[in-house]
Design a protein around this nucleic acid. Structure first.
Lengths: 153, 153
DNA sequence: TTATTTGGTTTCTTAATGCAACCATTCTGA
DNA sequence: TCAGAATGGTTGCATTAAGAAACCAAATAA
């Protein structure tokens, strides 16, 4: 009785969640974005159990989100680095961070700022091709033929 | 030996994942964005077990992401609707959807288009105050005093 | 040579997931 | 009116995942 698979639901969101939809994966990615690369550093900064971290890193590597690099120097043998695919999760992680700060308050001592100006980032928003901001009420869900999506049960 | 709590890690991302970081929650929210409101419709469209759905809906309601509304008409007794906080997850869900489509291909028969023009949406991007697009390499992580964030172990 | 660091694996206990059965209330059809 | 179905659950059980701690091999450092 294995966990439900999300990659065959015909849904992009489900497919994404199949790769990074568990409690730890996105946190590992976020930590990697902070510069963490080594196993022990992930372990200590996240407070994650070693076997779970092992499992998550393997799965992130399998899914092409991270790569394991052999660096044969003074006891530090491997590094886990984000791939382009992993770095591309920056949008997701940032949107999640901003959402949390908007609705739960800024519980984070850390801030994310523009590397050059040092100013806070702009809120991440969904826009149409013309650059107009859209909420979920401003969009339609359609099938390949442009017909309204039937939300079948 | 309870599950690790993510809301006291002093990290906004962790705090967000504590609310919607499990396998099902974001899918329920996504489905609600498609217009699903009733228990059975969530159940059938997602293929989720009833007890798990029950648990997730309760938790989403507890966290203020959804509300349970009593609609006393012909056997449909309750509706689960997104709150403003829930609708605000649109950015996150859309970023996740686009990420999946970029890297795993468009496995979704459903498309998300501008309600007025019918055109696909623009890619969600992180920008600075001036509107310049930023990658994770273009940002800094700093503490309250603007000092570089020390990635302590 | 003896620790120590690194990156794991193993074992064990607890929690979460999935499935099926059951259940009370409300509506529908005959 | 009365049987049946739908709705929104709850309960019980089997399987899987998570968390903590112990253990371990290879390489490094003291």
């Amino acid at each position: 009785m294995t966990r439900k698979r999300f990659d065959d639901m015909g849904c992009s969101v489900a497919c994404a969640l199949n790769e990074v939809g568990d409690w730890w994966s996105l946190l590992v990615v976020k930590q990697a974005m902070l510069g963490t690369r080594r196993f022990v550093d992930f372990q200590h900064s996240l407070g994650i159990a070693k076997n779970i971290l092992c499992n998550r890193l393997s799965r992130l590597v399998d899914n092409g989100v991270m790569v394991r690099v052999d660096v044969g120097e003074h006891g530090k043998r491997y590094e886990y680095r984000l791939t382009d695919k992993g770095r591309d999760l920056f949008t997701v992680v940032t949107a999640l961070r901003q959402w949390s700060e908007r609705w739960n308050g800024e519980k984070d001592a850390m801030q994310l700022v523009d590397g050059q100006s040092g100013e806070p980032l702009a809120p991440v928003v969904v826009k149409n091709q013309q650059g107009k901001a859209l909420t979920v009420r401003d969009v339609r869900f359609v099938d390949k033929d442009g017909q309204p999506w039937e939300n079948v049960g």
